[in-house]
Amino acid sequence: MKGHQNIIDLLNKQLTLELTSMDQYLAHSKLYEDWGIEKLHQQLSHEYEEELDHAKQIIERILFLEGKPDTASRAPIHVGDNVEQMLKNDLAAEQVVAESLRNIMTVCEQQQDYVTRDMLQALLNDTETDHIYWLEQHLGLIDKIGIANYIQSQMSAGTPG
Rank of each mutant, 00 (worst) to 15 (best):
G158H: 07
L135I: 14
L91K: 12
Y133C: 07
Q121R: 14
Q95M: 12
E99D: 14
L17G: 09
L26W: 12
I132M: 15
Q14G: 13
A72E: 07
G36C: 06
N82P: 02
Q111E: 15
E66Y: 03
N12A: 05
I7M: 09
T71W: 04
R74P: 00
D70F: 06
P76I: 02
L87V: 07
Q5T: 14
M86A: 15
E99A: 12
W134E: 05
P76R: 02
E66P: 00
E33L: 11
E49G: 02
I104R: 03
T20G: 01
E18S: 06
T159S: 07
P160F: 07
Y25Q: 04
R61C: 05
H4S: 13
A27P: 03
M22V: 05
Q111W: 14
L135Q: 08
M155L: 02
N103L: 06
A75Y: 13
D143N: 15
E50I: 12
T16A: 11
S153R: 03
A72D: 04
K68D: 01
T106A: 08
W134S: 07
T159E: 11
M119W: 03
A157N: 11
A72M: 04
K56W: 05
R117Y: 08
L123Y: 04
L141N: 10
K30M: 15
I77S: 00
L26Q: 11
I8K: 04
L63I: 09
L87Q: 05
E94S: 12
I58Q: 04
E50L: 12
L44Y: 15
H28P: 01
E84L: 06
M22R: 14
I77M: 02
E38N: 07
Q85Y: 02
